[in-house]
Design a protein around this nucleic acid. Structure first.
Lengths: 215, 215
DNA sequence: TCAATTCTTGAGGGATCGCTCAACAAGTAG
DNA sequence: CTACTTGTTGAGCGATCCCTCAAGAATTGA
């Protein structure tokens, strides 16, 4: 109701917008926020630290992102589209066999999680494990993402079983849960100081659980 | 200096102490605090929630435990001495072979972590993963405990190798890190809703990495 | 009974939390 | 130019954070 088509949507030929243009680069601001949330987690990162790192005052932050949860969710979405956050989905899609996909996932995790160019571990795994009751929604948001990854693992393994790659005796659900646990453990170990070399050994050992693998 | 032996230490025959006796049961108060820290983590648990659950006013809490960090450390120590918190050390000591020890550790973790009689997962693993800079010491406290567990794993595997239980080609350090990662991942999965049955399957799959295990 | 000791109590202090808002600045449209 | 729109700014609000302290209550020793 009360909709005026001439004011809905920007149909100007160039991307020229009205009003004062933002002085901050949204992508860079998100990158700064990502680093803080990744390192310390959602609640342990204050608006004050965020505004300082993002180079903007609280008013600008709230005008651009709504509130702290909105900023966090946009950070998580951007992380999920970045190479570092999307390597699992990429492996599941790119690799021809499930075996190769999970081997690549584990090896990538071993290389990425301890990479010193960013905070250790996986943001989705570790950024909202300790929250107060009033931020339970944020924890649930990441938990749902993790469980969605688990479901994607199971789906990939189930098609592998249908295609004959995986023996009929194998349990796709159990295998998926096992690999999910190993990956989450590798993230934790990276945050505790494990090196890429150590995590690679963990990845290789984990692959011994693959049906038919003899190690 | 200024030490008066008659005032140092309680040498009275009965356990009678001077002054007003505490109105709270220290063990029960610690149990209540443990539950909160376990569920929400160190910083996400406020003094207000603690005093309410422990049945004491802030002044009493600070007189009894020093400060929040002191209370937390005493909680962690009590947890480490409880059956639920000490099952790994118990298995390492009780079982005759390393293989049996790690099998029992994994199976116990699968049963204990999702047990509904207490918060999910392991307190040492999950209670201080998201902290502000001023509480970095608390995170380091738990990290050191985890890495000490890792070292105990490696030690047990090294003696197993010396005793001939483990082949010379096996890598005790890598195996220890692998099992540590699996256990930490199982704790995370339990907090994400994994059941004891699912975690038991994960435990069995994890054991496939044992040198010489086939299938 | 009277000190000495220990614990509880209620009030609240200083700092920080997430967040808001009126005033101002910088752009486009006519 | 004026009108309009959007972004920035600095001050600060109410709530909550961890923690403290003087006063009172409950015990023991003399």
């Amino acid at each position: 109701m009360l909709s005026d088509p001439s004011k809905i949507g920007r149909v100007s030929g160039t991307g020229a917008k009205r009003g004062r243009p933002p002085t901050f680069d949204r992508a860079k601001a998100l990158a700064a926020a990502t680093r803080l949330f990744w390192e310390h987690g959602y609640e342990a990162t204050s608006i004050g630290e965020l505004t300082k790192a993002m180079g903007m005052r609280p008013g600008s932050l709230y005008a651009a992102f709504g509130d702290k949860q909105g900023l966090f969710k946009e950070v998580v979405q951007a992380y999920g589209r970045s190479p570092v956050g999307a390597f699992m989905g990429a492996a599941l899609e790119d690799e021809p066999t499930a075996r190769e996909a999970f081997r690549r996932i584990l090896r990538d995790a071993a290389a990425i999680y301890p990479d010193p160019s960013h905070p250790a571990g996986c943001l989705t795994i570790s950024a909202a494990t300790n929250v107060t009751v009033q931020d339970a929604e944020v924890a649930a948001f990441l938990r749902d993402l993790r469980n969605a990854n688990l479901a994607a693992f199971e789906t990939r393994l189930r098609t592998a079983q249908r295609d004959g790659e995986l023996p009929a005796t194998a349990d796709p659900r159990a295998l998926a849960a096992y690999f999910a646990a190993v990956i989450q453990g590798m993230s934790q170990r990276a945050r505790d100081g494990a090196t890429a070399a150590e995590l690679t050994e963990t990845a290789e050992l984990a692959l011994a659980a693959w049906p038919g693998a003899h190690g």
